[in-house]
Every structure is written in structure tokens, then in C-alpha cells.
Design a protein around this nucleic acid. Structure first.
Lengths: 327, 327
DNA sequence: CAACTTGACGGAAACGTTTACGTCGCGCTT
DNA sequence: AAGCGCGACGTAAACGTTTCCGTCAAGTTG
């Protein structure tokens, strides 16, 4: 049905080796025969069989991408970044959704291992030591740093610091913080940063503990916050912030008049809400692109020393923050 | 580095053919030797090389998925459905994002063609006749029907009919409709259905024309709606509805007291908004699953006659609709 | 008991490339 | 004029499976 390199070789009056060389950029072939071969190939509708090529070169030409939840807009942007950079490198991407389950990360990793040249693992829920390390393909982590691993993450510590500084500048002295899942590495960064900077900024931090990273988690966080003297609430992410705003409004607490709210991630949601959410901007698209770039580097030089890239974050001020009401 | 079937064969004292048979479910091999082979394979860390397998069987074991925009929550759910069903069938999925561009659909189709066993094309922006049809792999369309093509779509006509009936039952006699992009097949279905049923239900339909399927499009739609006597607005999708609600609120028009708003798709957004959005529920997860099922059928029997599956839709009533204010 | 089926297994030929190696002209040096 | 280097190209051996035959023993039938 589909034609092979032999067909093209015959038609162009050359050997299959020459056909192969005409298609691989590096091949030593004269310009005239290359043109001849390419023309003949087009006429016959020939394109190299990727399976055969992969069998001999060992390169599959595609990379794996593992995310906790595709429906989470946070990861959607990461995928788009990966996608774009991968397309330039003529790589296809194989995506796996793990439904937020750590075990599925390992399964996905294993089943992808033989199919791809390398894997990008976004916001892994697993502990690093639980990840299989015997599948000799490069792995790049997103939003998780670990010694000896390639990774690209964002400077969450700086982002929430900016949030705290801003809220303090508005006049808030009592700030509540709703943390996310304990396994979240980036969440840990945020908590640590807030603790570190609260004292030196002269704000009292009320840690509300860990809530689910969902709307419902946000509802709970709002009630917890109202039980403290806090006049501002920093949330684990935008979704929690939105949930909190909804609950606050429902309980007659006006945002930002009675309570300022800050989210994290700057997802699409933060622009949609009313009032629009002040949030910590996290580069997602760029993280995806950077991860592919790192993967390419580790693919090019198998024993390159892993780099841990950190992308900048910055506060995006919208309408959910304001000075506290004079009491 | 990695061991091959030959290594396993040698270790187990059998031939490579037997190793192959032990791994392919169908192979005629005695239970005892199969167990022996599998044990030896596990010990050596062997797993069949997918490239070699593909080269000879012609099956790649993965399917392609092309979507206009990964960041659109609408498609995210479709992917999750595809993902789930594909995992059961031990298939990996290769995803391509076309950035809403019709041309990229063709490019993606072509570059995927040799890599996958079949392709699922969600909400194609291209005209059917522009799609390449010479790449002899099965294609399943989502949310687009065309004679001679496999497809799974939703009964948008019924969904918006229900919306119209409901709004009419609440007492609205003047209803505005903001349509989406003209290339949208499903949008066409909605428009046609509204036109068909408006008269018989005794409602006057104000067609606002086509707006961008974005928040900004929704802002525009709101202004257009306010220029008509309409007391209810049906929007192309949830995003447009949200944009409209925002604009209406900004202009001092209370939703749903002064104006009822109905969205379409029942995306996550519709639950997040305040007030929560009444919307037409469209099965996305199920559509993804169904598409894979269809793909499997057409893979199993190459000249099966294409089926066009239609999934049910139903109105989800939330807080953005209410009886019109007595004037 | 001979002939025949049946099931388990090995040998070997594919599948369609890439690439190491060899050959062959051609132009250049000495 | 002989030797040499070099670029272009062909030959053939991989890559790791699956699968078509063929063989052989064990059971089954007439």
C-alpha cells in the first residue's frame, strides 16, 4: 500500500542508502541526486517509516508528559508550552493523566519508558525516591527540585513574599494563610517563605492548616480565616482563593472591603472572578518550554550534569486586595 | 544495555519464537514454559521493544488526538475521557494542539498519520473537504458530523431546545441569542434549533449575531442584548455567558433579576461563577470515551460502515435564570 | 498397528530503515 | 605520471520482533 525507500530508490535510479541519505539532513549526497530523490518520493507519496527508523536509531522522536490532572487549567498551559517547543524540535508528545494519584505516576513512567526518548513529569505527587530510576531515559521534573534531577520550577518563595509585602504595604498586619496538600513541594516553598518573612515585615501570620486544593477547600478556608483577626487571606492557589471569596461573600463579608484575598498561579480563573483576583503570577507556558529545552540538552549529552532551572514569579495585582477597613 | 528476546530465550532454554508467543496472549505455548519464560524475562528486566513489534505488526499501539485548544476546559475533559478508555485498551495517546487554526489540523493529521493507528479529531475547525483523506488511517470526529465519517457528537439541538422551553416556562417571551464562530458545526446546530422552536413556543428570538467565543465576546453580547427587549440571553457557551454576566453586572443589570442568562457546555466555569450559571450540559468525558470505542471498532474491521453516534444533552439549572421582573 | 490429528516448539524469513565499509572516479600534489 | 585524498554512492549487515512453515512427539482413530 504505502511505498518504501526501495520503491523510491528504484524510481530514482539510486540505492536505498542514497534515499536514506537524502532524507537525513546530514547525509553526504550531491544536491542534484537529493533533489531527484525528493521529487520521486513526493510523487510516490513516500515518507520514512518511523518504526523502522526508530528500531535502528533507538530514537523514537517523541517525548512523554505526565501530569496530575489535565482538566486543571494550571497544567493545560504547561502542556501548551511543551507542545510548542516540541513541535519545533519535530517531536510528538505522549501525554498521561494520573488523576492526582502517586501510584499512577510510576505506572505511567514505566509504560512510557520504552516508547519515548525522555519524560517530563509535572508536579509529581510521588516522593522522589518512589520514582523508578532504572529505566535509563532522561526525566525532567516541573515544580519539584531534587538533587541529581533535572528540573524547572518557579520562584514561589519570592512570589508569595511579594504578596506578603504588598498586603503589608496596604496596611494589613494580620494575615491568614491556607496551605495546600502536604505532598506539594511548591506548597512547602510557599509556607516556608511566608513564615520566614512574616516576622521581619511585622505581620502576624495565622496558619489555617492544609485544605483541599478545590473550591470546597476554599469554602473551608474562608470560615477558618474569619475565626482569626486576619484582614487578609493568602490562599494556596487560585481555586482555593475563589472558593474562599465565594464563601466570604455568602457570609456577608465583602471582598476586598472587609477582607483582602490573594491567590496563586494566575490562572484564567483569576481574571474571570468578580472581583478579579490578585494573585502570584507563575510562568507555566515558559516552564513547559524550558522543560523540553532541558530534555533536549540531556538527550544530546547523556552524562551532562543535571541543571535545576528556576523561573521568576511576580505578583499580579487586581481587585481582590485593598487597604483594611479602619476599625 | 536492555535485554532482548534472544537473551530471554537463551536464559529460558527456548527459542525466540517461544518468547514471543509467551508475551502475545494468543500464542500457542504450554503453561509451564510460558511461566518459565515470563519469570526469566522479569529477572532480566526484559520487555518487548515496541519499535520492533510495530515494524512487523504495523500496529503502533497509540492513537492521535487533535484539539483546537488544550487550555480550553471543554477539551480538557474530552482528553480525560479519551485517556481513560485508551488506557484500558493499552493504548497511549499522542496529543496535538492546533491553536484554533484550521491549517494546523491538516499538518497535525499528516505528521501523526504514520505514528498512530488512528486519529480522533475534536471540534475540527477545518471544512471536512479540506481534511487529507489519503492517509489510510481511521479518523473519528468529535462534535462534527459528516456523511461517510465516523463521529460522536452531542444533541445540541435538544439541549438548547430545553433551555428555550425552560426560559419560556419561567415567563420570558423575548429571548436573545449570541452565536459563536460561523465555522462551528455545533454552533450551527444550536442556531438552527432555536430558530425552529422559537415560533412554536411563542417566544421572539433576537439574534445578536456571531461573537468571539471568549470573555470579550461575552461583554459585547451583553451590550447587544441590552439593546433589545430581551429579558433572557442564551449564549454560545459558558465563557461567553460569563463575559455577558460580568458586563451586565457592571452596567447595573442584575442577573437573574433583570436578565436571565443561559450558557452552554456545563464546564467547570459555570459552577464557579456568581451567580452559578444555568447551562446546557454536554457530555465531554463520555464523548472522549465513545470516540476511542469507535476508533477501536474501525480498527478491528477496516471496512466497517462508519457510525455517527449522538450523545444526549440536558439542561442544568442553576442560579442565573429566574422569572422576568414584572414590568 | 498404521495412519492421522493435534499441540508445542524451533528455524528462518520477513518488516523498512540506518550506517559501517568498500569502491570508484576525479582533481590535486610531488 | 604515480600517488593520494576526497566526495558520492552502492552493498550488506544490523536493529528486535512476529509469523509462516516444518518437525516431532504424543495421543486418537479406524
Amino acid at each position: 500500500m504505502t511505498s518504501t525507500s526501495r520503491d523510491v530508490a528504484r524510481a530514482a535510479g539510486v540505492s536505498v542508502a542514497t534515499v536514506s541519505r537524502a532524507f537525513s539532513e546530514t547525509g553526504a549526497v550531491s544536491e542534484t541526486t537529493r533533489r531527484k530523490v525528493l521529487a520521486e518520493a513526493r510523487r510516490l507519496g513516500y515518507s520514512p517509516n518511523p518504526a523502522a527508523r526508530r528500531l535502528i536509531t533507538g530514537r523514537s522522536g517523541n517525548i512523554g508528559l505526565i501530569v496530575p490532572d489535565l482538566a486543571n487549567p494550571f497544567f493545560a498551559d504547561i502542556i501548551k508550552g511543551v507542545q510548542r517547543r516540541a513541535r519545533e524540535a519535530r517531536q510528538a508528545i505522549l501525554v498521561a493523566d494520573t488523576d492526582e494519584q502517586a501510584r499512577m505516576e510510576c505506572d505511567a513512567l514505566r509504560s512510557l519508558a520504552r516508547q519515548v526518548d525522555g519524560v517530563i513529569l509535572a508536579s509529581p505527587r510521588s516522593a522522589i525516591e518512589d520514582l523508578p530510576h532504572d529505566l535509563n531515559i532522561p526525566i525532567v521534573l516541573i515544580h519539584r527540585e531534587a538533587p541529581g534531577w533535572w528540573s524547572v520550577s518557579a520562584d514561589f518563595a519570592e512570589g508569595v513574599r511579594q504578596a506578603l509585602v504588598n498586603v503589608r504595604a496596604l496596611g494589613h498586619e494580620h494575615v491568614a494563610y491556607a496551605a495546600g496538600p502536604i505532598q506539594s513541594w511548591s506548597g512547602g516553598m510557599r509556607t516556608a517563605s511566608l513564615r520566614r518573612h512574616a516576622a521581619e515585615l511585622g505581620v502576624t501570620l495565622y496558619e489555617l492548616g492544609s485544605v483541599a486544593p478545590t473550591i470546597d477547600g476554599g469554602l473551608a478556608a474562608a470560615d477558618l480565616a474569619l475565626a482569626t483577626p486576619a484582614t487578609a487571606l493568602i490562599a494556596y492557589n487560585d481555586v482555593v482563593a475563589l472558593g474562599a471569596m465565594r464563601r466570604l461573600t455568602a457570609r456577608g463579608v465583602s471582598v476586598p472591603r472587609d477582607m483582602s484575598v490573594v491567590g496563586c498561579d494566575n490562572t484564567m480563573l483569576s481574571q474571570l472572578s468578580v472581583p478579579a483576583l490578585t494573585t502570584v503570577g507563575v510562568p507555566r507556558y515558559e516552564a513547559g518550554e524550558a522543560a523540553v529545552a532541558l530534555l533536549e540538552r540531556s538527550l544530546a549529552d547523556a552524562d551532562a550534569v543535571p541543571v535545576q532551572q528556576v523561573l521568576p514569579t511576580s505578583l499580579v495585582i487586581r481587585d481582590s486586595t485593598a487597604p483594611p477597613r479602619p476599625s
